[in-house]
């Protein structure tokens, strides 16, 4: 296998992120104050403390989404900056929660509460940072960034669908062939990610071939495997071989394009040196 990396920008699940444990630590005293207020029959304090607890819980919830977004952004080679700045929103909510908890629930003087609120926003910004703002979209030529991201995303979704479909296949030979083709498809996606200008040339591959395999695997899955005749199976195997050859050719073509670009640039530099 070549050294090519897989194109695998799966979305990070906000729930599994460990970052943000400090915020959980802050929930503990509020939780205690809710329980103590309840047992002490201070119902108004119980209500207010519960609101403060929920506000801080909201901060954690928003922060986790923000952290997940940031991780996806860092992982992806081509992406746009997050549309909703969740980390920034949670910093402001932290300010509001701090003010509420100190001034309304805790009876701290307003000016002190406001200062604490401001410091909490500053602390959040310093400790966790705010959301990334810059789009990671360079060297696109005349192609719209949305087209590139959308096409890559669609291809990736379709590949994920095919992978899910073939996971239940019991025909190992066919499964291996499809997996091999998908591996090549992954490599092609990486090549396009590295040189997005090629997306126009590779569009047919991305739309027609991957879509075709997705259709074949999904209709294959809708049938009982014992109902598939030997003849159909052979045709399928042949088809997958053809697909693999096509994918290989596509990759070669993309490589050749890069080679051509290099040649053009060398010639150009030569001309400039001579001139």
């Amino acid at each position: 296998m070549s050294k090519a990396k897989r194109y695998n920008p799966t979305k990070t699940d906000a729930q599994i992120i460990k970052k943000g444990s400090l915020l959980y630590f802050f929930l503990f005293p509020l939780f205690l104050s809710v329980v103590i207020a309840l047992f002490g029959k201070h119902y108004s304090a119980f209500l207010i403390n519960s609101v403060a607890f929920l506000l801080f819980f909201g901060v954690i919830f928003l922060s986790k989404i923000g952290f997940a977004q940031e991780m996806d952004y860092k992982k992806a080679k081509l992406t746009k900056a997050p549309k909703v700045p969740y980390k920034q929103l949670s910093a402001y909510l932290l300010g509001v929660s701090t003010l509420f908890s100190a001034y309304i629930a805790g009876g701290v003087a307003l000016i002190d509460s406001l200062i604490m609120s401001g410091i909490s926003i500053l602390g959040y910004w310093l400790y966790y940072g705010f959301d990334p703002k810059k789009d990671k979209l360079e060297n696109f030529g005349d192609i719209s960034a949305d087209v590139v991201l959308e096409t890559l995303g669609e291809a990736q979704d379709k590949i994920a669908d095919i992978k899910r479909d073939i996971s239940t296949m019991s025909d190992t030979l066919l499964k291996d062939k499809i997996e091999m083709a998908l591996e090549r498809a992954d490599i092609i996606l990486v090549a396009i990610t590295e040189k997005p200008q090629d997306i126009r040339k590779a569009r047919k591959f991305l739309i027609v071939y991957i879509d075709g395999i997705a259709n074949v695997t999904s209709s294959y899955n809708s049938l009982d495997e014992s109902d598939i005749s030997q003849d159909t199976r052979n045709r399928l195997l042949e088809l997958m071989e053809d697909v693999e050859i096509k994918f290989k050719a596509e990759l070669e073509r993309l490589k050749a394009n890069s080679q051509f670009d290099l040649d053009v640039n060398i010639d150009l530099l030569k001309e400039q040196i001579r001139g």
């Binding site: 400090l22 802050f26 929930l27 005293p29 509020l30 205690l32 104050s33 103590i36 207020a37 002490g40 201070h42 304090a45 207010i48 403390n49 403060a52 801080f56 932290l94 929660s97 701090t98 003010l99 908890s101 100190a102 629930a105 805790g106 009876g107 701290v108 509460s113 200062i115 604490m116 609120s117 410091i119 909490s120 500053l122 602390g123 959040y124 910004w125 310093l126 400790y127 966790y128």
Partner: peptide, 30 residues
Amino acid sequence: MSSIYKKVFGFIFLLFSVGSAVTAPLLALF
């Protein structure tokens, strides 16, 4: 400012401000 200082300052700020705010309701009950 280097990132470690940012983290340390951020941590202290959070601990001071949010820490005081979340313990205030608890203290108010006693």
